[in-house]
Design a protein around this nucleic acid. Structure first.
Length: 422
RNA sequence: GUGGGUAUAGCUCAGUUGGUUAGAGCGUCAGGUUGUGGCCCUGAAGGCCGUGGGUUCGAGUCCCAUUACUCACCCCA
């Protein structure tokens, strides 16, 4: 028995409706805010992610699906979307066009992690990126898009947390202060946080350990270390969020794991879907485009984890699961009737009456049972007798009423199905 | 990469302190006279009890290993 790869998903028809619901919400909201869809390769040169996402990040260091092509080039299955979008913007000359540039995408991504609730090796993201705008209005616009999207799918128990991690200049000052603070308490920190002190001190802030949490509570706060312009930017964002009526809480412990973030970072968090509760996360990345060889071009974006959104839909959403059977099932008895049923079925389907007929050679009784099971609105019974007399029974499966029709009079069959079906 | 939990039919699960041919419900398929679904009744198919070792006269049951699933750490959407 060959099984699907670990951490991947088969999405069956019943479940895929939820995914379609989410995807159509993405498209609807993006249209509303003027974001255009971009599609790009599933794999890119490994270098793109190494330089864009950051050489030292866990994602790049131990989670990428990397392979060598026949010509020796190293490629990687995309672990996220932003770096690829930035690359496509540069490569297609969009950076020289009209700004702002607003793009969105719905993609699958790949990360070799240990699977758990809300975390998969192949996972799906809805992402949006806004380039060429440094104003806090851009940050607010993007957060509004995300907020509208979550509202559109009607999720309950979602909260927005924002923070500013500053520009590279003020962040390094802050980082030093943080290292200094935590170094004093080094003995009390958990094992992983002690090593984080060297590698990524900001990460200590969102450690799950209660002891580290306690220590982090009194740690220096990012917002106290922002330079003048970063502070103004953050204040500007908060003002604009309030103006458009978006509730938020400032959470100094929000830290993004990807190197390209600067200034604004944010997360939408959902209750009750397990430990992986960030349903949408993003931030500003003014240095990314130049980092991967493009011009100076500001950007801000987010990605929402579709798998996690599907999970949080269990807790309530505006999704309605409407099971709909075909309008008509044609029960055929015998070879001649079967041939006739095939033709009738095709004609009716063309005319907008969703029709089915027997494909597996069942008895009449079994066909009736099947019609009932698939929730067909009507059943037309066709046998030798009907073909000879030119009269057949059209049965309303809900009421049990039967109508005498001619199998060749398609018009009147449609008329009855439409009238009774409403 | 590190821990915990789980593994019996397509699905959800029973299976006594180890004891003969491993069960139920649901689902699937077929019947319940002549050409009419739902409810009900009957029957059938479907399991190397995750895999490999071990203990034992005897293992679905106990022990070890392994794999998968799952939850958490880590990381992140």
């Amino acid at each position: 028995m060959i099984q699907k790869p670990r951490g991947t998903l088969d999405i069956l028809p019943g479940e895929s409706k939820k995914w379609q619901f989410i995807e159509s919400a993405c498209r609807k909201v993006c249209k509303k805010h003027g974001f255009g869809e971009i599609r790009f390769p599933t794999f890119e040169e490994t270098q793109l992610f190494a330089r864009g996402v950051g050489d030292t990040t866990d994602v790049v260091q131990k989670e990428m699906y990397t392979f060598t092509d026949r010509d020796g080039t190293s490629y990687t299955l995309r672990p996220e979307g932003t770096a690829s979008v930035a690359r496509a913007v540069i490569e297609n000359g969009l950076a020289g066009g009209t700004m702002p540039l607003k793009l969105f995408y719905i993609i699958n991504c790949f990360r070799h992690e240990r699977p758990q609730a809300g975390r998969y090796r192949e996972f799906y993201q809805f992402g949006a990126e806004l380039f060429g705008a440094t104003s806090p209005s851009a940050d607010a616009k993007l957060i509004l898009l995300a907020s509208d999207f979550l509202k559109e799918i009607g999720l309950k128990n979602i909260s927005l947390h924002i923070n500013s991690i500053g520009c590279p200049e003020c962040r390094s000052v802050y980082r030093d202060a943080l290292v200094k603070y935590f170094s004093q308490k080094k003995e009390d920190l958990c094992q992983t946080c002690r090593s984080r002190l060297e590698t990524n001190p900001l990460r200590i802030l969102d450690c799950k350990s209660p002891i580290c949490k306690g220590i982090a509570a009194d740690a220096p706060k990012t917002i106290d270390y922002l330079c003048q312009s970063c502070k103004e930017h953050f204040d500007g964002l908060k003002e604009r969020l309030s103006e458009v009526g978006i509730d938020y809480t400032v959470d100094c412990n929000i830290v993004r794991g990807l190197d390209y973030y600067s200034r604004t970072v944010f997360e939408f968090i959902s209750e009750g879907i397990g430990a992986q509760s960030t349903v949408c996360g993003g931030g500003r990345y003014d240095g990314l485009v130049s980092q991967i060889g493009g011009p100076e071009l500001a950007g801000i974006g987010f990605a929402a984890g579709i798998n996690r959104l599907v999970l949080s839909m269990e807790n309530g959403s505006s999704f309605k699961d409407e099971e709909e059977g075909p309008d008509l099932y044609i029960a055929a008895i015998g070879e001649k009737a079967s041939v006739k049923a095939n033709g009738l079925c095709a004609k009716l389907s063309d005319l907008g009456i969703v029709s089915e007929t027997d494909l597996v050679g069942r008895s009449l009784k079994a066909q009736m049972k099947y019609a009932n099971k698939i929730d067909a609105a009507f059943t037309l019974i066709l046998g030798d007798g009907e073909l000879q007399t030119g009269r057949a029974q059209l049965r309303n499966m809900k009421t049990g009423d039967q109508f005498d029709v001619s199998p060749d009079d398609i018009e009147s069959i449609i008329k009855i199905v439409k009238r009774e079906g409403v």
